[in-house]
Amino acid sequence: MSEIVVDAVSKTWGGVGGVDRIGFKADAGQLLVLLGPSGCGKSTTLRLIAGLEEVDAGTIMIGGRDVTALSPAERRISMVFQSYALFPHLNVAENIIFGLRVRGVGRGERDAKLRKVADLVGLSHLLDRKPSQLSGGQRQRVALGRAIIAEAPVCLMDEPLSNLDAKLRHEMRTEIRGLQQRLGMTMVYVTHDQTEAMTMADRVILMRDGHIEQNGAPHELYNEPASDFTARFIGTPPMNIIPWKDQLLGVRPEHVVLMERDGLPAQVRAVEYLGADSIVLCDLEGETMAVRQAGYCSLQPGTKVGLGWDNRHIHLFEKDGGKRRHDGARPH
């Protein structure tokens, strides 16, 4: 119903951050994450969808309507900004109902909706506070409340969690995802944090230098990265990629095993203990290989080890351009 279709959209400023003929579709009720390093064009894409920037070329459809030439208000969207963009002179209640007031919604309806939304985002006891009297997480909730009160079918989020600490971020992640699903919104969510993307998204679009590197479900990006860029971007720690013959060979840390005999000779450089598992960083002919080991690992730096992996776990990429190869020669 309210799916978003971006078709061959371009925007340049003659510098970084533009986008070049990108196209994708966000299905109704889905959470689509725009992921990528800074300057890749993900925020630009979001702002183009919001109508805060005008496209140079291409069309944008929301819910079957061509909105390319419409103002943000006419697109029937809501938006949460990285800085929350709360009005500092208005209290929480007034911030949340700002849009309702603009549209001249009657007092009764306004109050009812406010009560509902405040409940939903857990702000009922703070309605009279000014933003300056709130914590970061509470401000985030106000921004969220303002976005959902309009009941717009589409909600755009621009790195909404990047100003929060790790614990709060994790909490909010679940909450936003829950809200999105409960309210059935189509959500486009911009982030540079691949964990957020992987945990929240129905679909992830990984962007790089103004174009789409890969568009797929989280597990697709993880299991079948379309390029070495994707492979390196997704996963913590990222995929190990080493040159092998005339191509690049990638293998995820959890698929590398320390072998007692045989194996490729390597040397332990460091061990990062994470609790449930440990990441052993090894030096393999000048390349770094990360190895995930369950539990605590007591290997000392300098220890000689052998590395090995199962061939079904390897990914091959072209040396030039880094595209995934499905037909490459595999080691035995």
Binding site: A50, L52, S71, P72, A73, I77, S78, M79, F81, Q82, S83, A85, F87, P88, H89, F98, G99, V102, R103, R146, A150
Partner: peptide, 29 residues
């Protein structure tokens, strides 16, 4: 005054005059 305020308001449908009256002016008080 952060530019996002203006953007947030425009997403909510506030016109230039409304924004000036309800946001800019109070913030300039």
């Amino acid at each position: 005054i952060p530019p996002e305020l203006k953007e947030a308001a425009s997403v909510e449908g506030a016109g230039r005059w409304y924004f000036f009256r309800r946001v800019t002016l109070p913030l300039l008080m």
